[in-house]
Design a protein around this nucleic acid. Structure first.
Lengths: 237, 237
DNA sequence: AGTGGCAGAATTGTCCGACAATCCGATTAT
DNA sequence: ATAATCGGATTGTCGGACAATTCTGCCACT
């Protein structure tokens, strides 16, 4: 039962301008890499003050649609990096107080599929990145922070190797949410480290040999383990 | 092989301030619903000009961490709405030129699982929303735009009924990406509408009866159909 | 020709002050 | 108690200003 009258929200100028520029970018009439006109120039074109333009630009900058290459002054049209986007998503999720179970169910849906496609499509470079993350986990297994970072990198590498940007971008926020939980788990459940290491080996091996089914199954087991670990850990409290 | 030297990027003041406030919000010392101090006040507290504060605020506003209730002037701390967040993600994906296959694989990973949990956990209200979206598709089947919107609503309702915010938020961006493709498909493939309608009925029915397995399986078939439809449609070009 | 250096123009980040429109809150009138 | 009113507070936008940095075209030099 949709409302008959939609609220008329008068967008302030900075928002309207942001929208117009966004349309230009999404519609490709401003192409990636193009430099944005100077603020003064934009102010003149839109017939508003430079301060207004700046507020509009900030909006696009945080969306990742504008950015600057290091050491450069002028803004350029940019394609939003997955990292930036996903950090926004996980911040949102964190603020909504997601439970571990919710996170786990989502991982269970995405990670095994990503592993499966990774086995089918990984490039040598992607395989190498993945193996290296696994090796780093082994090496830094004593340092909790580094170990957690390595686990996250492993998942990221698998997702990247899946050759599917949508899966990769859906998976990325999960990593950031996983990190804190995983840190506690790895510290409190003694056998966690060994199990992670074993699972990563199996998964990497399957992906190396292009065994899709095996990769999926091992990833499933791997993720299941997280739930078990989490249960063990929370029993200890 | 991490770089030895990290690029030192001097964050401008507006970015630093945005970060500080963001920390306060994420760390809950500014709680949801709290009004933000006035711009003048913030300028005084941070010891910068109001223009600088405004640029910082715009950043948080676009992240959805600040917002205002309709007709109100002052900003309040807000929890980012899924819609806003997911629209950012799908814009990013669109700019990265994702293929239909990528989108489809991700849907295949997420939607059936969402349907499965929805069957297990849906509330009466959620079920009703879902059924209503299905009914709307039937009613508006002639109007392509409305029909596509109804399909999107159906998926959204299923995800919401899954009782899993992470799944819901992972699923949301897929909808926006699906819409344009689905519009073309529904127009060009004559049998598409009937098949969608049948699938929605089956899915809604399974969710109503709390048959998790059935819900998952029917959703899988439903999504598979999209791929078939897409292939048919692209053959006609 | 290609390279390096340099001065001046352009651009960004930040500041100051100002003003209309609107919202908020308290006071007053019914 | 409710309604009307009025002044203060707040936001959106404007104009101008200036230091710091980057960009650019030009010139000299090898």
């Amino acid at each position: 039962m949709a409302d008959l009258f939609v609220p008329l929200d008068d967008h302030p100028a900075y928002r309207q301008i942001a929208n117009v520029i966004e349309q230009r970018i999404v519609g490709r009439s401003l192409r990636t890499g193009d430099p944005l006109p100077s603020e003064t120039d934009l102010a003149r074109q839109f017939g508003v003050n430079r301060s207004t333009i700046r507020e509009a630009i900030r909006e696009l900058e945080t969306h990742g649609l504008l950015g600057r290459v290091r050491g450069e002054k002028r803004l350029r049209v940019t394609r939003p990096e997955p990292r930036r986007v996903s950090s926004g998503v996980s911040r949102a999720l964190a603020l909504h107080d997601v439970t571990f179970l919710e996170l786990w169910e989502a991982m269970m849906a995405i990670e095994p599929v990503a592993a499966q496609y990774a086995a089918a499509r990984r490039t040598p470079a992607q395989l190498q990145a993945l193996v290296r993350a696994g090796a780093r986990f082994k090496r830094e297994v004593a340092d909790t922070t580094a170990a957690v970072a390595a686990v996250v990198d492993f998942f990221t590498a698998v997702a990247a190797a899946s050759g599917n940007q949508v899966l990769a971008l859906s998976q990325a926020p999960l990593n950031l949410l996983l990190a804190p939980t995983l840190t506690r788990m790895i510290d409190r459940v003694p056998q966690a480290r060994a199990r992670i290491q074993a699972a990563q080996d199996k998964i990497a091996h399957a992906i190396k040999l292009r065994r899709s089914e095996q990769a999926r199954i091992w990833m499933e087991k791997h993720i299941r383990d997280f739930k078990r670990g989490h249960e063990l850990e929370s029993m200890k409290c």
